[in-house]
Each structure stands twice: as C-alpha cells, then as structure tokens.
Amino acid sequence: MADNTSSNAYWAANKRLIGLCLIIWFLCSFGFGILLRPMLSGIAVGGTDLGFWFAQQGSILVFLVLIFFYAWKMGKVDKEFGVDE
C-alpha cells in the first residue's frame, strides 16, 4: 500500500470527485426534476416542460454520463497516486 500521506491525498481527491459528481446528480434529478420544476416551466419541451423531461428522461441520461466520467477519471487518479491494480 502507498504511504499514509499519499493515501490520504488519494482519498481526498476521490471525495472531491464524488462531491462534484453528486452535486450534478442532485441538481439533475431532485433539482430540475422536482424542486426547481416550477422555475423551469417556461421552457417548453415536446408538449410539456423541461422539468418533466428531466424527471422522466434527462436525469437518466445524466446519471449514465456521470458514472462513466467517474470511472474514467478515477482510473487516472489511481495511476497518478500509484494505487492502480
């Protein structure tokens, strides 16, 4: 295992990345899909509004991008800290 300071830095980098991804995760589902839907009601999408699109379709697409982005980015972080398999 890597020494303690670098493993702490690795964990901090991981947590920062998770934090960023989860902000987007929250915003695109709970945010645009539920809480902020009234604010987005002016933006029309195919017979309804943007909030409805996010709730029934957009959020799922964002989730997909997020997971692959995280997996890719963490692969790089693993190498950077020398903890890859």
Partner: peptide, 24 residues
C-alpha cells in the same frame, strides 16, 4: 403521470451512488 417519475429517477439514480459510494 409525472407524479410517478420517482420510479424512473429512483431506480436509475441509485447506480450513481452504488458506483461512487459502495461498489469499488
């Protein structure tokens, strides 16, 4: 209708948590 969007978001959004917080 819209009220049931929770099923769609809930049963997919959990994978984001799984990939980042638990699985690895």
């Amino acid at each position: 209708g819209y009220d049931t969007s929770a099923y769609l978001m809930g049963w997919t959004g959990g994978y984001v948590l799984l990939a980042m917080l638990l699985a690895p």
